Simulated assay, not measured.
Amino acid sequence: MALINRTKREINAKIVYYGTPLAGKATTLQFIHRKLKPEFRGPIKTMGGQVDKMLFFDFMPPGLGELNDYRVRFHLYTVQGEVSNPFTWKTVLKGADGIVFVADSSPESRAATRQSMENLRSFLLSYGQDLEKLPCVVQCNKSDLPDACSPEEIAGLVDGSGFTAVKSASRSGEGVLQVLSTVVKQVMRNLQGEEQGSEPVDMLDSAPVREASEATLAGEGSPELPGEEVPANYGEISKGDTRASLDKTSSVALDGEVSVSSCGALRVPLTVRSDGGEERFVLTITLTPEHLKAE
Rank of each mutant, 00 (worst) to 15 (best):
A2W: 11
I4Y: 07
N5R: 15
Y17L: 12
Y18G: 04
K25C: 01
K25H: 11
T27P: 00
I32W: 05
L36A: 01
P38W: 08
R41Y: 06
T46F: 01
G48N: 08
M54P: 00
F56T: 07
G63Q: 09
E66F: 03
N68A: 14
N68P: 00
R71D: 10
T78C: 15
E82Y: 07
V83A: 04
N85R: 10
W89T: 05
T91N: 13
R110F: 01
A112M: 01
R121N: 15
F123Q: 09
L124W: 08
L124T: 08
L124H: 09
D130A: 11
D130E: 15
K142V: 03
D144P: 04
P146Y: 10
P146S: 11
P146G: 08
E152C: 01
I154S: 01
A155T: 09
G160R: 05
S170R: 00
S172M: 05
L177S: 00
K185G: 06
Q186T: 06
Q186G: 02
R189P: 00
R189Y: 04
R189T: 02
G193M: 13
E194G: 05
E195Y: 04
E199R: 14
L204P: 00
D205S: 14
D205E: 13
S206P: 01
S206N: 12
A218G: 13
G221N: 13
P226V: 13
G235A: 15
I237L: 15
R243T: 03
S245W: 02
D247T: 07
K248M: 02
T249E: 11
S250A: 10
S251C: 14
L254I: 11
D255S: 14
S259Q: 12
S259N: 07
G264C: 13
G264P: 10
R267Y: 01
L270N: 09
T271A: 15
V272W: 08
G276R: 10
G276H: 04
L283K: 13
T284W: 03
T286A: 08
P289F: 09
